Simulated assay, not measured.
Amino acid sequence: MGCRARAPKPELVRVVVAGAQCVPDLRGRLQGRGAYVHGDPACIELAERRRAFPRALRVPGPLDATPVRALVAQQQSGQQQRGQQQPGQQETAQQEHDRHQAAGSQNVPAAPAAGSPVREQVEKR
């Protein structure tokens, strides 16, 4: 959502709305519309700057992403601790993230506009 690069579902964090906050949904079981974002602070910051959370979750007004940022920071610190034990893995994760950001929106096809015939066909399925 932030960098708009595609990734396999297990590499992403699902986010749902709870009140006026974006809440991470680690099990993928919370109610409501969900959106996916990379578990990277830069990607979350970019999503906030672009106001992507309210748009993707289809809610009015700004949303607080503090719980999502806290989870990602916790995951990052856990990876860094593991990275001290196995330095090669930390570099691989960084290289993979750089590759996703470099791909940017080039690999992401544009979604059909609301009310377009293509979108109506997709929704009928």
Rank of each mutant, 00 (worst) to 15 (best):
P67G: 06
R51L: 09
D40S: 05
R69W: 05
R119P: 03
Q85S: 11
L57C: 02
R125F: 09
S105Q: 12
A56F: 00
H100C: 06
D64H: 01
A102F: 06
D64R: 02
E48F: 00
D25W: 07
A35E: 10
C3E: 05
A18K: 12
G39M: 02
Q21S: 14
R58S: 09
A47K: 03
C22T: 06
P62H: 02
G115E: 04
R82E: 15
K9N: 12
Q76W: 13
Q95A: 15
L12Q: 14
A102N: 08
P112A: 02
L63V: 00
A110W: 01
Q75L: 15
G32L: 09
V16Q: 07
A65S: 09
C22Y: 01
Q84Y: 04
C3H: 14
K9R: 15
Q121N: 07
E11A: 15
E123T: 08
A113V: 12
P87L: 01
G2M: 11
G61R: 05
V16H: 02
Q94A: 13
C22K: 00
R6E: 13
V72C: 09
R58K: 11
E96C: 11
V122E: 14
A18E: 15
N107D: 11
H97T: 13
R27N: 14
D98F: 10
R29L: 14
Q94N: 11
L46N: 07
E123D: 14
G32T: 07
V118S: 08
V122N: 06
P112F: 00
A35F: 04
R58G: 05
V17T: 08
R27F: 11
Q89N: 02
A56H: 02
R55P: 03
V23L: 03
Q76A: 15
Q95M: 11
R49I: 02
Q74I: 02
I44Y: 03
K124V: 00
P54D: 01
V68T: 07
N107C: 08
V13K: 01
Q31E: 15
A7M: 10
Y36G: 12
T92H: 13
V15S: 01
A18H: 15
V37G: 04
D25V: 06
I44G: 03
G34M: 09
M1P: 10
T92G: 06
G104M: 03
Q74W: 13
G104N: 01
D64S: 00
Q80S: 12
A52L: 03
A7G: 10
A73W: 04
A56E: 06
E11C: 08
T66N: 01
P54V: 01
R33M: 05
P109N: 00
Q90T: 04
A93H: 10
R58C: 07
S116R: 04
P10Y: 08
P112V: 08
G32W: 09
A65D: 00
Q86I: 09
Q79T: 10
L57N: 06
L46D: 01
A103S: 10
Q74N: 11
Q94H: 09
A52Y: 02
C22I: 02
Q74M: 09
S116Q: 06
R99L: 14
V15C: 04
A114T: 13
R82K: 13
Q81I: 11
A20Y: 07
P60M: 00
P24K: 04
M1T: 12
E45L: 10
V59D: 01
K9P: 11
G115A: 05
